[in-house]
Simulated scan of single mutants.
Amino acid sequence: MMGMQDVIDAFDELWLILALAGAGMLFLLIILLIVVLRRVGKSGRMIEPLNRQIGYLDQHVQALSDGQAQLSGGLQTVSQTQTVAQAQLMNTLEQRLAEVQAKMTETLHGGSLRTTRSLTELQERLATMDKAQSNIEKLSSNVLSLQDILSNKQTRGAFGEIQLNDIVSKALPTDSYKLQATLSNGKRADCLIDLPNPPGPIVIDSKFPLEAYESLRNADNDWEMKAAVSAFKTSVKNHIKAISERYIIEGETADGALMFLPSEAVYAELHANFPELVREGFAAHVWIVSPTTCMATLNTMRAILKDARMREQAGA
């Protein structure tokens, strides 16, 4: 009985071992199944993006195919448009070329006419220039003659007197003035204007300090300029003094006289750079005038003479 019981116990132990082994095997199979299922799941997840990319590629391939078709149509349209544009460009160029040729022909014809006219005008102007050159040569000879006249003191004085006579004769009636009039002191005035009292007859005497003025203009250094200034002042002062002493006579002439400078340049130099000489003339009752200011002064005198004669006629 004990032997049988041992067998049964041994068999139970074997069965228990087999059961445990089977359970272990089942557990391992379950684990393997789980691992396999996980790997299969991972493979499925890896294949899914690949499938999506394949789908995207199919779409891009389709889009490229559509784009190629559109490009082919566009190229055909561009080719047709280019052909039309080239034809229009050729027509435009031909028209422009024809217009340019016509304008060039017209311009050349007009240029020929203008050239002919210009040559004619040029010949006329050359003839005028020849005539002007001849006049300039005559004027140059006259200038040289004038320089010769002004270089001599006596002829220079005569030049001033002639210019004064011309101005007076144009401004005043002939019976209102005397040329080269002799005063009671024996002095001879270049011009004596018979103004009514007051102020009475007034003398105009011509003075021309040309040498002193030319020295002033031609001075090259300070020493020459200083000497020229001194000479110019001395010359003008002497003229003022001579006129004041000779031609202002109480009871016979006006209380003043005019010193006529026949050169506007000398007159301008005097007033611009030597105002003290002008003031000295005022103090001596000697008023310095140029050809322009002399004419203005004579016009005033003419008005005075006219007014005096009108009063005489009214009184008569």
Rank of each mutant, 00 (worst) to 15 (best):
L277H: 09
F260N: 03
L150G: 04
V143G: 02
I202H: 00
L305S: 06
D148R: 13
M301H: 07
R188N: 11
K207I: 09
A254G: 15
I202W: 05
A242P: 01
G73V: 12
N185Y: 07
Q313E: 15
K226D: 11
D58I: 10
K178P: 00
S206I: 06
S235H: 13
P201S: 14
T292L: 07
A212H: 05
T155Q: 13
S79L: 04
T120Y: 07
P198L: 08
K237E: 14
G315W: 05
N273G: 07
M4I: 12
E124L: 14
I54R: 15
F159D: 07
K153M: 01
L64H: 08
S184W: 03
V203L: 08
Q133C: 04
E224D: 14
L122C: 08
R246G: 05
K187Y: 11
E245V: 07
S176A: 14
K178S: 11
G22W: 09
L50F: 05
K241I: 05
R117I: 01
A10D: 14
R38P: 00
S263R: 07
P199S: 09
L28M: 10
R311M: 14
A265R: 10
R125P: 02
S206M: 08
R125M: 10
S118L: 15
E264G: 05
T182W: 00
D194K: 09
Q163N: 09
G67F: 05
Q163E: 14
G22K: 05
R217D: 06
A254F: 06
S290K: 08
E312H: 07
V35A: 09
D148W: 04
L33N: 11
A127M: 03
S184D: 08
T292G: 02
L18D: 06
V229Y: 03
M310Q: 14
I240Y: 01
K187L: 00
A171R: 11
A283K: 10
L277Q: 06
S65E: 12
Q59H: 10
A284F: 00
E269V: 03
A283N: 10
A171E: 15
R311D: 11
S151Y: 07
G24F: 06
W287H: 14
Q133G: 13
G281M: 03
V40F: 11
D175K: 06
P209V: 09
N197R: 13
T128K: 11
D66M: 08
A10H: 14
M310E: 15
W287E: 10
K241R: 14
T107V: 04
G256Y: 15
T77F: 02
L14V: 06
I54F: 11
M25L: 15
I193H: 03
K237N: 11
F159Y: 15
T293N: 04
A158H: 12
K241P: 00
T92V: 11
Q82Y: 05
K103P: 01
R45Q: 10
A23S: 13
A21V: 11
D166E: 14
L164G: 04
G22R: 11
F27E: 05
L89D: 00
G67R: 15
N135V: 07
S244R: 15
G74N: 13
A303Y: 03
I162K: 15
L305P: 03
D12S: 12
V40D: 08
D130T: 15
E124I: 12
